[in-house]
Design a protein around this nucleic acid. Structure first.
Lengths: 348, 348
DNA sequence: TTGTAGGCGTTATCAA
DNA sequence: TTGATAACGCCTACAA
């Protein structure tokens, strides 16, 4: 390995000068600088990042924490890959690296060890759930002054740095869209209320129904677990209620698609016999048949913003003052939510 | 920050002894060990990973290199997320961390800088393509003795450490399955031959057709780019040839689904009017309508094996002797490939 | 079984 | 504008 020392010798300067050149610090004679760069080039010198981290007491790594659940695709791959890409883009712009950490749920209490070992300067946490254990460990993190940002999950009552999408408004838009298409009997297939997303979506749904002076019958509220299978299963309950339901708003695309699949087996086709709109606007929405209307969520931008936020704190030495950022969503209309008065009147 | 020194003082031993206890090295009196652990516990001491890396001259990080292509979902998210999970699992078992690096294609020549900066001890490279530039930079890497492993991509003529699936056999199985269902006019929608996968699949297809004494008409060979859209577009060519085609083998699920979508618009339904089988057995295969038969590829295991391989080299100080590992694939039969003599005879 | 001490490659402070 | 030099926290011969 080529070290600073060898460069210094070849360039006939001190080691300190080599560092200065490479870090662009302090005034220096252009000729000296040129000599050093020349020598470095010749020796193919590359600063040792680890030694730098050690001396600077900063790793230059942003930690990204994901829940590790083998074989369980609770979150669509789409969700993670978009957020990750956003984080990666921001991180690269700031000259940071990205340390991925898959944590088993039961280890989640140990977020802090990541920091203590000094392998990361800050963290972005994905896929957290609102449980007492999580709350406690996050509060602990905050107390110790470790900078972190939660993506797509709020913790009501606590003030963390959070980047979220406006799921209340998104859901409102979704239900509103169904209403605009002429539907009035609208069911809601939600996910676990352990995710703030779900809570928000319920609120948006309720609001849209109220504003339209529509009743929210309790049996129109279904709960799945964000998997395709749970959507598939929810369909049987919906089928029993088919006289009371014209349209369904599902809290993600996978459940929406599972639902459509199950109802199709009974001869009910989405976008013809009933309407469906999902959430996420994932790839799957384009792949399904009929193509699924959905609420698009700016996952990429959320990841980018989260990374920007935490790293700004680290780089400028400012404390990250807890902000709650909400990015807007958008309705993407495809076939599954098309209104069709003719068919609907036949039914009733 | 609590350091080893403070622990040593509290436990009334030397710093070296603290290290020994934490690294489980050398013989030591149980009582000493207990005293050290007690002191560490009390002070909440955690070894500084960066200082360790620095002293050991090993980062403890495995680099994972992905091609960075914003907004271009060339590879299905499924592919990456499965391989990544496999890598993550292995890495955690070996006490390593995972450094993610998204590289723009034009930067790919600079793999080596990752190693030179000492941020990673080894790399797993995903989504490489067989281009002259890539070949050159990979050969360069190898010459310099940097350990790396390619996943799902072979470089014919060079001997790198590679973990692949047996795509030749997989394709053979796929085509064979279509033949067993009674189809004889089988088209092949492949991806770019810049990926060894595509080359392999073509070979498997050819072999299966030959073994069944079926002719491979050149017009039955189509090429897309692994996107849904390209599958959708390929459909128009297939439609023109509809008298010569009963079934299609597509080199991935996304193209297969795009194909089905386009043909359905013309009234041709997969699994009824024609048969389709894809590759990857991604989530999308279960989401499509009809559910898509596919060749399942053990991405998770491939990632795990790749990580195991490169890290074994690093940990045991052995050179990674270039191995070419091939994991088996499997046919997953769903509705899209069902034979249906009745309909097919109607057509002809 | 334990202690001593040199070294790892930088950064950053203080002089010159 | 540049050079010395003390950290940084840990590993690891070597010595005792």
């Amino acid at each position: 390995m080529v070290t600073r020392k060898e460069v210094a010798e070849l360039a006939k300067v001190s080691e300190a000068t080599v560092s200065r050149v490479f870090n662009g610090i302090g005034p220096m004679k252009p000729t000296t600088k040129a000599r050093v760069l020349e020598a470095a080039e010749q020796l193919k010198y590359h600063p040792n990042a680890i030694a730098q981290s050690f001396a600077r007491r900063r790793s230059g790594n942003l930690g990204v924490v994901l829940p590790y659940m083998p074989k369980v695709h609770l979150f669509s791959a789409y969700y993670f890959s978009e957020i990750l890409s956003g984080i990666a883009e921001q991180v690269r712009e700031l000259g940071y690296d990205l340390l991925l950490s898959l944590m088993k749920p039961d280890e989640s209490l140990d977020y802090a060890s990541l920091y203590r070992s000094q392998k990361v300067d800050a963290c972005v946490i994905l896929g957290a759930r609102d449980t007492p254990g999580q709350r406690e460990s996050l509060m602990h993190l905050q107390e110790q002054g470790y900078p972190f940002c939660l993506v797509n999950q709020r913790f009501e009552g606590l003030s963390f740095h959070e980047v979220d999408a406006d799921h209340v408004e998104g859901s409102y838009q979704a239900v509103r869209h169904l209403q605009d298409e002429g539907f009035r009997k609208i069911a809601f297939l939600n996910g676990s209320l352990g995710y703030s997303n779900s809570v928000d979506r319920l609120e948006g749904y309720r609001k849209a129904m109220q504003d339209a002076k529509l009743e929210v019958a309790p049996e129109l509220l279904l709960e799945g677990n964000y998997s395709r299978k749970s959507g598939y299963e929810a369909a049987s309950r919906l089928w029993e209620l088919r006289d009371q339901v014209e349209a369904v708003f599902a809290a993600n695309d996978r459940m929406a698609i599972g639902l459509m699949q199950a109802l199709r087996e009974r001869g009910w086709v989405g976008g013809r016999d009933f309407a469906v709109i999902g959430c996420d606007d994932s790839d799957a929405a384009k792949l399904s048949d009929p193509p699924l209307s959905s609420i698009s969520v700016p996952f990429f931008e959320m990841g980018k913003e989260a990374a920007r936020g935490v790293l700004a704190g680290v780089l400028h030495g400012e404390a990250v003052h807890p902000a709650r950022i909400k990015l807007p969503t958008q309705v993407v209309v495809r076939q599954s939510s098309k209104g069709n008065q003719a068919n609907r009147s036949q039914k009733s």
